[in-house]
Nucleic acid binder design. Structure first.
Length: 420
DNA sequence: TCTGGGGTCCTAGGACCC
DNA sequence: TCTGGGGTCCTAGGACCC
């Protein structure tokens, strides 16, 4: 009975290295949109003390002075490499849960008994590295929470093979003893503070509290975590392609936006993109929310956050309906005199594309829904946007600053790597 | 000067019902 | 003058994840 967690090492930084062998052993960082924060660091960059999520401008000078290499994020490329890694993993066992762009859980129960799981892990790691160039860590344990602990142990002990199988009670206990409670999956900052205040500092101490007590004093979520630390299996592999429950498209702006006429087309772009995602999921939504906010870091400027939710009487995935709702939502929340730093669209209340729910009362704004029309638009826009809606900003999503992006090596013919 | 984006799940409390 | 008890459903917001 075991699960494996496969975790790509410094994923975005490793991707940037695939076609750049000259960057071996060079510190690499990858930045968020607008080159705002550091969102990935190579081992060398971590060793230099570059923290996760730190604002780039705070570390830029020292990092570049040490000859570090910096990249703007290239999610198209990372997504493609991720898909290749996941494909390989899916070849090993039938049940794989793709947990995030750089992590997957594998159910190893289907393997023959007496299979040496550690050797199996090493074999998978070798093949992923050989076929994609991405180094992975593999933590094997009786359940998901403990497989996360195994990954932490690989990092902490710097295990050279990057594979660890926590196979008996003593090994698990020893690992828990060396894990601070904050590193446990499901314990964030707030919970950590509460647990510390109660005198609980390590994962081992957390595991020694009775689940009933934890449930009473905290929550059922933490109770599950405690049970898993004790070796029970509470969370299972979720490999059914479950559909999304919410779609969010939002961006921070490269430059602050303070007038409605500039904001409208930007938010329209978000709505168009969100609708595309929705149709891609083969879903319809009946709730559209719009939000805007100023920068919370700008303490001496007036702050405002506005959010408005619009109900649609009939579920739709038609961009025009969602644009109409978006406009309706934006007008009442916008206030002049504020420097807005971010805006976004959230789609909620999904229903299947096939099911049809008509309103009992006639909706005066009857959705214009036309599935075939939207399909044509999607086809034409598949590779590059050809057709715009009148309310859109035809240039870009939002004024975004980003200029250190690597080529789309594997997804664009014009940017294929060249061999001289 | 410059601080990401996209998700899920749970809970408390209000609205409403009989 | 006196004003219950038990339940469900929904939503906003918090906490967490990568």
């Amino acid at each position: 009975m075991a699960f494996a967690l496969v975790d790509c090492e410094s994923f975005y930084a490793s991707c940037e290295r695939i076609f750049r062998p000259d960057l071996k052993n060079i510190p690499i960082v990858v930045l968020s949109n607008n080159d705002g924060c550091v969102i990935a660091r190579s081992t060398e960059a971590k060793r230099m003390g570059i923290g996760m999520g730190v604002p780039w401008f705070k570390v830029r000078d020292s990092f570049l002075k040490e000859n570090g290499k910096v990249f703007s994020s290239n999610f198209t490329f990372y997504g493609d490499i991720s898909a290749r890694v996941m494909n390989i993993l899916e070849g090993f066992v039938p049940r794989v849960e793709i947990y995030s762009i750089d992590e997957a859980f594998l159910d190893l129960d289907s393997l023959r008994q007496n299979y040496n799981l550690y050797d199996f892990g090493c074999h998978m790691r070798g093949l992923v590295k050989q076929w994609t160039g991405v180094p992975v860590r593999i933590g094997i344990a009786p359940n998901k929470t403990l497989s996360k602990i195994a990954i932490n142990e690989i990092k902490r002990r710097n295990i050279p093979t990057s594979v660890l199988h926590l196979s008996n009670k003593d090994q698990i206990k020893n690992a828990l003893k060396h894990t601070s409670v904050h590193k446990v999956w499901g314990v964030g900052r707030r919970l950590n503070d509460h647990l510390n205040a109660a005198g609980i500092n390590t994962a081992l101490e957390l595991s020694e509290i009775s689940p009933q007590n934890i449930r009473r004093r905290f929550s059922v979520v933490l109770e599950r975590t405690v049970r898993e630390l004790r070796g029970e299996r509470c969370l299972n592999i979720e490999d059914d392609i479950s559909s999304k429950k919410q779609i969010v498209v939002s961006r921070s702006f490269g430059e602050r936006v303070s007038n409605l006429e500039t904001l409208k087309p930007i938010v329209s772009n978000f709505a168009v993109r969100a609708s595309e995602k929705l149709r891609n999921e083969k879903q319809k939504c009946s709730q559209v929310s719009v939000f805007v906010r100023t920068s919370p870091f700008n303490k001496n400027k007036p702050q405002h956050t506005g959010m408005k939710t619009i109900e649609l009487f009939t579920p739709t995935s038609d961009t025009r309906d969602i644009l109409t709702a978006t406009k309706k939502g934006l007008l009442p929340i916008f206030r002049s005199g504020y420097d807005y730093a971010k805006a976004g669209i959230i789609l909620n209340r999904f229903s299947n594309e096939q099911t049809r729910q008509y309103s009992l009362f006639k909706d005066p704004n009857e959705p214009k829904e036309n599935t075939r029309f939207m399909k044509y638009i999607d086809q034409m826009n598949a590779y590059e946007t050809q057709i715009y809606y009148a309310s859109q900003n035809t240039k870009k999503w939002s004024p975004m600053k980003q200029n250190m992006t690597s080529p789309k090596y594997t997804t664009n013919w014009y940017e294929l790597p060249k061999v001289n």
